[in-house]
Design a protein around this nucleic acid. Sequence first.
DNA 1: CATCATGTAACATATGAAGTTACATGATAC
DNA 2: GTATCATGTAACTTCATATGTTACATGATG
Lengths: 154, 154
Amino acid sequence: MIRDSRLSSVLHGLLHMIGAGEPVTSEQLAQAMATNPVVVRRVMAGLREQGLVRSEKGHGGGWTLARDPADITLADIYRAVGAPTIVAMGHRSENPGCLVEQAVNDALSGTFREVEAIFLKRLGAVTLDALAKDFKRRLAKHKQSLEDQIHAVK
Amino acid sequence: MIRDSRLSSVLHGLLHMIGAGEPVTSEQLAQAMATNPVVVRRVMAGLREQGLVRSEKGHGGGWTLARDPADITLADIYRAVGAPTIVAMGHRSENPGCLVEQAVNDALSGTFREVEAIFLKRLGAVTLDALAKDFKRRLAKHKQSLEDQIHAVK
DNA sequence: CATCATGTAACATATGAAGTTACATGATAC
DNA sequence: GTATCATGTAACTTCATATGTTACATGATG
């Protein structure tokens, strides 16, 4: 299964980082991600290991992007966030020699690999930068519509 | 996410049914599926609703396939077993109006649909009958190799 | 050296899947 | 008809795992 919550929550945080020109604290990210600071550190630690973000301690510390948003794809993030691989079929330690298991695996393991490959390929086609721009577009549109409402009232 | 355990466990049960010429009790299936009778009934109930199996009460009762194994595909079973749809991204009730969420959705919802479609298409290409035959082949091979070992000892 | 921020272990809570018990319902054999 | 067998299902109990929380250590900055 694909855990969406993690991915979309992390994207919230990253978009937040792009906006801010300075390091963002776990505390601030926790708000953007609707969670708490420790969880933020836990999740961001994974991204740091993949070289996507950096963390700095002390005054003025916090989290920053380690790479150009145009060079970071959703696939990178998905992987860093701990992609559980789409499926785990048959790789359980339960019945290593079970013949039914083997037959099922043979029939499906290729499919799983293929599906996962396609999924990652698609994610790889979307950069963080593109996402940020799309978000800004939406924001502008949203503002516009709010203003329109105000004018209509006036 | 794709819950494999369910699918592969159910396949165990179904192959068992193909082998037996008569109704198989939940008790017997529980052994084949390494679980207990109530869970078997719970899971099989889903397959019954999809018209894949039948259940009969009383003496000589139990579970039987409702259709020709050559007409049942793994996609049918996957769906009946309660396919949680590969992913749930963004459809959470949490932030219905969140613009980040919307941007992410737009970027990925098509991908999710596509990936799931491919997955089901592949599953749809494998029939229960084909799987059973493959299993029998493996079984024969396994027996053969056991006999070889015995002869070698003699 | 006081303060701020991350790093992390240890524990608490929540959610959902799976297992279990208990009993109702229906079917078959005698 | 009634004893027995099998499913149907509600209610409850684990169990696993993700998430949240507390507490404290580490390191950086002013």
